[in-house]
Simulated assay, not measured.
Amino acid sequence: MKSSIAIAAVFSILVGLPTSSVAGPEDVVVKDAWSRASIGTNRPGAAYLTLHNTGTDPMTLVGLQTPLAMMPEIHETKTDANGVSSMSPAGEITIAPGESISLEQGGLHVMLMNLQTKMVEGETFPLTLTFSDGETLTVDVPILGIAARGPES
């Protein structure tokens, strides 16, 4: 399995496909991973990305790890009828075959709580996604400017 992942990554480089995402479980593709620089370590950071399941079986994301934060979790922001927003852990996220899940501002996203170092613009950090089948996928997440609104900004 690991050799097929390496071959897929090399193939992507050779044909010019995005390489930020060909790794880990062979049926999951990660696109547009990014985060914002932080002022310090006393407030949580966040990361955003899109997960696409290219396989024929559902994939369930059950955990996250990064040396950047002691408590990385998937959170969801919800806004009630009165316009009041709240955020809470989302738990496991299942991606149906052929479908994508976006972890983005204002919805599902990666919360990086208890930062161990400041998030510095221009750097990257590894984010390891763990799936219910025990497979993992590690993505290098670029840190953009403090006012960034997405990977294109």
Rank of each mutant, 00 (worst) to 15 (best):
L112T: 02
E26R: 00
M70A: 10
L17S: 07
I13T: 05
T56L: 12
V22E: 15
V110A: 00
H75C: 08
M87E: 01
P89S: 01
V139C: 08
S3D: 15
M119W: 09
V139I: 14
M111G: 13
S102M: 08
G63K: 06
A96V: 13
P18T: 00
I101C: 05
P18M: 01
I143W: 05
S35C: 08
T138P: 05
Q105E: 08
K2L: 15
N82W: 04
T56V: 07
F11H: 09
E99N: 09
M71N: 04
A147E: 08
M71C: 07
F11W: 09
A96D: 09
N114D: 11
E123G: 12
L112G: 03
V120T: 13
G91A: 02
E152M: 13
L108D: 01
W34Y: 05
V84D: 06
S21N: 07
T77K: 15
T66E: 09
G63A: 09
R36N: 12
G63R: 05
A90M: 06
T50F: 11
L68R: 00
I101G: 02
V139E: 15
T60Y: 07
L103P: 11
E76Q: 06
E123I: 06
E92K: 01
S85Y: 01
M87V: 08
G98R: 01
L14C: 10
D80V: 13
L115V: 15
L137S: 14
L129M: 12
K118Y: 10
E26L: 06
S12E: 06
H52G: 04
G83W: 02
T124V: 07
D140S: 11
T79L: 05
I93D: 00
K2A: 14
S35M: 04
S153M: 13
L137W: 10
W34M: 07
D27S: 08
S153N: 12
T128R: 00
G40R: 11
I95Q: 09
W34A: 03
M59D: 14
E104V: 14
V141D: 12
D133K: 01
D57K: 13
M70V: 11
L115G: 11
P44W: 02
A33S: 05
S88W: 06
S3G: 09
G91F: 08
M87T: 09
M71S: 06
